[in-house]
Design a protein around this nucleic acid. Sequence first.
DNA 1: GGTTGGCACTCTGTGCTGTCGAGTGCTAAT
DNA 2: ATTAGCACTCGACAGCACAGAGTGCCAACC
Lengths: 344, 344
Amino acid sequence: MKLNERKQAILAAIVETYIHTGEPVGSKLLTGKLGFNVSSATVRSDMAWLFEMGYLEQPHTSAGRVPSHLGYREYIDALMRPAPLTAEERTEIDSLFNVRNPDPDKLLEDAAEALSSYTNCATVTSSITPKTVRIRRLELIAAGSNTVVILLIASNGIIRNKVCRVDFQVSDRLIDFFNKFANGRLGGMSIDEVSSAYLGAMSVNLGEYSRVFNPILTAIFELCREVSDGQYYVSGSAKLLEYGELNRLVRDLLLMLENRDSLQALFATKGDGQNFKIIIGKENQTMELSDSAVVMTGYEVDGTPAGTIGLIGPVRIDYARLIPHLEYFAHTLGELLTETLSRD
Amino acid sequence: MKLNERKQAILAAIVETYIHTGEPVGSKLLTGKLGFNVSSATVRSDMAWLFEMGYLEQPHTSAGRVPSHLGYREYIDALMRPAPLTAEERTEIDSLFNVRNPDPDKLLEDAAEALSSYTNCATVTSSITPKTVRIRRLELIAAGSNTVVILLIASNGIIRNKVCRVDFQVSDRLIDFFNKFANGRLGGMSIDEVSSAYLGAMSVNLGEYSRVFNPILTAIFELCREVSDGQYYVSGSAKLLEYGELNRLVRDLLLMLENRDSLQALFATKGDGQNFKIIIGKENQTMELSDSAVVMTGYEVDGTPAGTIGLIGPVRIDYARLIPHLEYFAHTLGELLTETLSRD
DNA sequence: GGTTGGCACTCTGTGCTGTCGAGTGCTAAT
DNA sequence: ATTAGCACTCGACAGCACAGAGTGCCAACC
């Protein structure tokens, strides 16, 4: 049931034309766009075949044809010719990053914003914390007589802090004591290993101080979870409004993008490693996305997968242009993060 | 040119009916809703008068009437009877706040979210840092051999950190030295007094270390600006899509809410102190808001204005219900923050 | 003088109709 | 296998009539 050369060309032309115009494409228009020298009737019979096979859909009897999800799938998997980035585009993207900031959180935020302004889609970046991330440093800082701030610096450069109220009178001596204790016990440990059980065991070791420091240990646990759950940066969600075909669901889409859990569910479906994942329309598990396409890929820091970058737009987007762009964004992001971290 | 009792009642009834139904209201419908026992013809002549005076508008000749901005204004300023909160509503709102978290940033975020889910509008909360906010503590923490984290704890409970790359080999001795130096010079100082000039003078005092610590001083300056500029938390912007009348501008509205500068411009127009400010439609400076209403008020921490809380919705919102609610939110937020800070 | 009922008028929304054009599907010829 | 020709289908659009809601005005009334 393979497509011959002409059928491939016709399908590709339909997808590309439709991506551009957003209108069903007819046989006559198509004959002009094809390299082949055939009449519209021939094209028509091929289109009928493609329709039969499920590659095309028909909004109504006398309209042109529109790619079905299967059609897009075939186009993306086999027919599309990705447009490699020009040198100018590369330097333009490079300049979009705020290279000077060594904070990974800021970098992810900037990347989401840059990608969004570049692609005119909603974008999401996230840090998926792999098992290898360790606690580089924990620091307790006095913030008041009964308040402390706990600062966690992770080996992937992520920094989080948390305010914690304590029962005891905060003193330099106690802070010092705890900092030594905590860094001794937790420093260098994998984030995921910091379980309530482990912290409970630690608490026992604190002896007389155990009760006093318990809220702090709890806070440390929560901080580790925050780092390990990663963070999602969304940008340009308002751009989804520009695509009329999404109108029906755009409200749910926006709500989804505001909701951490939905994002997590979506990005958890990401494929293995650096590979691309393109989910088209109804292929999506979630209703909200049934008229959208999600294109995402991972980025690597120092050779290990460290996060995801992706975009959400209408099914009708210029894959051939966007995929190489997204690839370059992921690559650049990984590079910058690697460089940032290798500096010490 | 004052409105007599019946005209007042008619205007109020028109505003309230229109807020509910969203459809132009006609004289016949109105006669039923009024306490007065008059015929539709009488109501009609009063409506004609209100129209003449600019309190009402007419979408087209044979349609009912719709309140003009002046009409809304009169309603809000003189006619509206705010619906005081019931005890249940109060406890419901109280329970929406995540009371246990002593972090002001989280509190503001929660407040925005809670207010949005409660009012079905987009909401914004912000911390405006008054002149009285001081540096409570500055802490330099080693994050690598050439990287430090600077943590700033402000007297209003706000905590910010920044990663900073340095030229020198980070050592405990240097960190200690700088921490003492910085807290001695800057601790207790008003955020706004930390100018580049002042830091420049400090740098001179560092003598041989001057060059080495300069990037850190710059980072401290930036941190102070971050705290002093305040933060904006937006929630529920997707809810604006539910209001058909905003459709035309909703894209620009959403973009505005994503943009820090626009928010700042909007909230800078806030009135004095705790007072309410309601800006209706064209009263707004910014085009994007010309079909929306902005309702905002300040909240106070320890008796001084400390921030703003507000909501953005269509002009047609239930002011009588929302204003007391917003008031209560602002009050609760201020209380919680005051309590949080007074704990040490 | 304020209030009322009556009536003509205006405008929107809806549904029906006919026409136009784009595009298909089929068939017979090449 | 390809093509030209032709009938057919369907949506978009414009025109039209009609019902319904609401107004504006006027003469009559208390």
